[in-house]
């Protein structure tokens, strides 16, 4: 790691003041991604501002019947919180599908959103990477791209966002609460992460002097019919090749409302209102699920090694929706896929 100076932020206002005063500084909370990237010399901040002690560790019910999750709530505490387990089991399941318990104990809710890609070339500092060094080129497009994106890519970048939690938050219509020098604002989940376009160095629309203070999830938790299915090279403790968050509201066998989001396939959790709208009013069965998969995967493009993801994603979507419809969510400990 490079030498850096260290300071602790006493409250949110202090954190914003400190980051505004030093553009070369970075916030650190759980540190599970940033410290690792510093060890690889991908990140080399001159100063770390420790926000891990900020009073953003509660999970509170909102007047609208949803929850406001403090940005510093550890991932494990969030997954095991009774209100999350009961009302938002899709979120609990997605969190428990990611990382290891040690990392979930460390990682913060806000930091989970700000994870950087796991693209091999982003980590390998001797190769070109537009995300790490803008303008240097993308090594993945013609390189080893088995883990890379098939949707929403650009000529500059085919990286994926690595989070599982964010895929569930996208499906649940979460909103991100942020604060900055100009005050507080909330960002709808689809507007938080960006597609790479010509500026892949920017992962999100969070400004450099802003801080995430919390995540709000609306009342609707889809706790009867949901599933999170993660397909990866190992049974546990590996990033998704493809993951699917599915949530259904059923009236008998008819789909009243559907939510569908993919992980491991794009620079952000991948959702398309058209795919969800197409399921509404349909019989909850393979025909509707296949049509939704086709709509969600419209425009999918492989880059060689990752061509398999397109077919894998289609089958995973149909399977996950079917698990949700049957009320038999994928277990994150018993790995057999039913």
């Amino acid at each position: 790691m490079n030498p850096f100076s260290y300071a602790r932020a006493s409250d949110v206002a202090d954190a914003i003041r400190q980051i505004a005063a030093d553009p070369a500084a970075r916030f650190v909370a759980g540190g599970t991604n940033l410290i690792d990237l510093m060890k690889y010399d991908v990140e080399h901040p001159a100063r770390l501002i420790d926000i891990s002690q900020l009073p953003l560790k509660s999970i509170e019910e909102t007047p609208e019947g949803g929850l406001l999750i403090g940005a510093m709530v550890p991932n494990s505490d969030l997954a095991y919180h009774p209100l999350i387990e009961q009302r938002y089991p899709l979120l609990a399941s997605a969190i428990l599908a990611g990382a290891s318990q040690q990392l979930r104990n460390m990682a913060s809710t806000g930091g989970n959103l700000l994870q950087r890609t796991r693209c091999f070339y982003f980590y390998d500092v001797v190769t070109p990477c537009n995300k790490r060094k803008p303008g240097s080129g993308c090594s993945a497009i013609s390189g080893v791209n088995r883990i890379n994106a098939i949707l929403g890519t650009s000529d500059a970048c085919i990286a994926t966002h690595p989070s599982d939690m964010c895929v569930a938050l996208a499906a649940l219509d979460a909103r991100v609460h942020v604060a900055g020098p100009g005050g507080a604002r909330t960002v709808a989940f689809p507007d938080f992460h960006r597609l790479p376009g010509a500026t892949p160095e920017r992962d999100t629309n969070l400004e450099s002097d802003e801080i995430i203070t919390g995540i709000e999830i609306p009342a609707k938790g889809f706790n009867a019919n949901y599933s999170y299915l993660k397909i990866r090279d190992r049974l546990s403790y590996a990033f998704a090749l493809v993951s699917v968050a599915a949530a259904l509201e059923l009236e008998g066998d008819t789909i009243k409302e559907a939510r569908l989001a993919l992980g491991g396939v794009a620079h952000k959790p991948w959702r398309d209102p058209a795919a969800e709208a197409a399921m509404r009013g349909q019989h909850a069965g393979e025909s509707a699920f296949t049509k939704a998969a086709d709509l969600l995967l419209q425009g999918a493009q492989g880059y060689g090694h990752n061509n398999f993801k397109i077919g894998l994603a289609r089958r995973a979507i149909v399977r996950t929706l079917s698990q949700a419809a049957r009320g038999m969510p994928q277990s994150q400990s018993v790995k057999k896929i039913r």
């Binding site: 260290y6 540190g31 410290i35 891990s52 040690q102 460390m106």
Partner: peptide, 11 residues
């Protein structure tokens, strides 16, 4: 339980 390798002692 945590990974001490990704934890800064000052924190």
């Amino acid at each position: 339980r945590i990974n001490s390798c990704l934890t800064l002692a000052v924190m």
